[in-house]
Design a protein around this nucleic acid. Structure first.
Lengths: 179, 179
DNA sequence: CCTCGTCCTGTACGGCCGTACAGGACGGTC
DNA sequence: GACCGTCCTGTACGGCCGTACAGGACGAGG
């Protein structure tokens, strides 16, 4: 089983390295060779573990996507509770937040049925949940601003302790939406 | 002069098409062929007008970058006035805001001296101006959240009239920073 | 000892990218 | 009518991408 374990170790090492690289450069800007160099392997070795490159991104995103899905599945009485839950989600998955919201969900060329399409749908649902049905222009701006505040705030403070980021950002998001 | 005019017309058409494509897909995801197809030309024709591809982005960004530079050069008594000015700037250049803040300023592989490096420096200066020197963790989160609220709010409401976006976002940004 | 599966390398291929270069269409200039 | 600069096309090249495939190292199991 030693051999099998070794494989899983390098597999997770690749996953971690790819996650970090994607977070700081963006999905499209990172090649398999870059990831391979970060873990000291060849790009063929990376491709061996994750046959299509998309799987890498999919596997990195998976837990966060599930979490987001669960968040959307829960009923929330008001926008404060929802924003609190969303902020907690964003902080918990801050390492993959960029990949999730920009690179995958932001791609316009995503073919129907692809993970990118699904993620984008989740993003729209997130907005709809916060802004409500048929939102006024005023509400639209406030909702996007609140979501954006959380997203950028999380992405730029990865070096800080999660607790204070979460606390401050929740307050900030609520303040935006109620402004 | 008719010939010369024609050149300038297609030149600006390329510029406009590239700006829109960059805004919705991101810089790296748009090829010269895509831009060419959008204006009904060959990619060689696009390359004729903008010899390196970087020049396209540089020329699209230029007015916004100058504006941002001017904004940073002005003295502002307090954060409210600064946030108001920044929001006005963001709304005015909303078509290039993504290109400016993510694609160019977010690239990590930007070599020293490149426009990307300069833009990133401007971003840092923007944050420093708002957060002040040696900001506390608390202030850091609030400053990034405020900037992020404006950026995302602007990017997601390009179809709305500028006045109400600017007004609402200014209020939102102030609310975040004072939360 | 031989076999087998796992893990990884080396090599090679097709595809798309940005770029270079030669040439053609076309109106303006003399 | 000859000349010229501008604008654009067609073709071709090198480079990097992701992928496919054959083969080698190596511990596990019979």
């Amino acid at each position: 089983m030693t051999t099998l374990d070794q494989g899983n170790v390098t597999r997770s090492r690749i996953l971690a390295a790819a996650r970090d690289l994607f977070a700081e450069r963006g999905y499209a800007a990172v090649s398999l060779a870059d990831i391979a160099a970060a873990v000291g392997l060849t790009k063929t070795a990376v491709a061996y573990h994750f046959h299509p490159k998309d799987r890498l991104a999919a596997e990195i995103i998976a837990p966060a996507a599930d979490d987001l899905l669960a968040l959307l599945g829960t009923g929330f009485p008001g926008h404060r509770e929802f924003l609190r839950a969303f902020t907690a989600f964003a902080v918990r998955h801050r390492a993959v937040i960029r990949l999730l919201t920009e690179d995958i969900g932001g791609a316009d060329d995503a073919p129907p049925g692809s993970p990118g399409e699904a993620i984008r749908e989740l993003g729209r649902e997130l907005f709809a949940r916060l802004a409500g049905p048929d939102p006024s222009p005023d509400t639209r701006v406030r909702a996007w601003a609140a979501l954006g505040a959380v997203r950028c705030g999380v992405a730029r403070t990865v070096d800080m302790p999660a607790e204070i980021v979460e606390e401050r950002l929740t307050a900030a998001a609520v303040a935006v939406f109620e402004s």
